[in-house]
Simulated scan of single mutants.
Amino acid sequence: MGIYLDYNATTPIDKRVLDYMVDVYTNKFGNADSRTHDFGDGARKIVEQARKDVAGLLGVDSTEVFFTSGSTESSNIAIRGLIDYANSVGKKHVITTSIEHKAVLETVKSLKNEGFSVDIVDPEKDGRVKAQKVIELVRDDTLLVSVMHANNETGVIQPIEEIGEALTDKGVFFHVDATQSCGKLVDELRNTKYNMLSISAHKFNGPQGIGALVLRKKRYKLPPVKAISFGGQQEHGIRPGTIPVALVAGLGKACEIAAAEYKKNYTHCLEIKNAVRGLIEESGINYEYNGNQEYCMPNTINVSFQGVESEALMLSSKQYCGISNGSACTSNDYSPSYVLTAMGIDKETISSAIRISWGADSDLEAIKENVGQLIVVAKSLSF
Rank of each mutant, 00 (worst) to 15 (best):
D6K: 15
L18S: 09
L18M: 12
D19L: 11
Y25M: 14
T26M: 10
N31E: 13
R35Q: 12
R35M: 12
A43W: 03
K52F: 05
A55G: 03
G56T: 08
V65H: 00
F67Q: 01
S69Q: 07
E73I: 15
R80K: 15
Y85S: 04
G90N: 03
I99M: 10
H101V: 11
K102Y: 14
K102C: 07
L105I: 06
L105W: 03
K112L: 08
G115R: 04
F116N: 04
D122Y: 13
D126L: 08
G127Q: 01
K133I: 08
I135K: 13
I135W: 05
E136P: 03
L137T: 08
D140F: 04
D140S: 14
D141A: 02
T142R: 04
L143C: 09
L143I: 11
L143R: 08
L144K: 04
L144C: 04
S146N: 08
H149E: 13
N152W: 05
E153G: 01
T154P: 05
V156W: 02
I160W: 00
I160N: 06
G164Q: 01
G164R: 04
A166K: 10
K170W: 02
D177T: 11
C182G: 02
E188H: 13
Y194A: 03
N195I: 00
I199L: 07
H202D: 15
Q208Y: 09
V214N: 02
R216M: 03
K217A: 02
R219H: 13
Y220A: 15
K221M: 14
K221D: 13
S229V: 12
G231Q: 09
Q234P: 01
E235V: 11
G237N: 06
R239I: 06
P240T: 10
I243F: 07
V248T: 11
G252T: 00
C255T: 04
A260W: 00
N265L: 11
T267R: 15
I280Q: 05
Y287P: 01
E288A: 14
Y289H: 07
E294K: 14
Y295I: 08
M297F: 06
T300E: 13
T300K: 10
N302P: 13
V303Q: 10
F305V: 06
Q306V: 15
E309L: 15
S310I: 01
A312C: 11
K318N: 15
Y320K: 05
S327P: 10
A328F: 13
C329K: 13
D333A: 07
Y338I: 12
Y338M: 10
V339D: 00
L340C: 03
L340M: 12
T341C: 09
A342M: 05
M343F: 07
E348M: 13
S357L: 09
G359A: 12
S362A: 12
E365C: 04
I367L: 09
N370C: 07
G372H: 05
Q373Y: 07
A378R: 07
S382P: 01
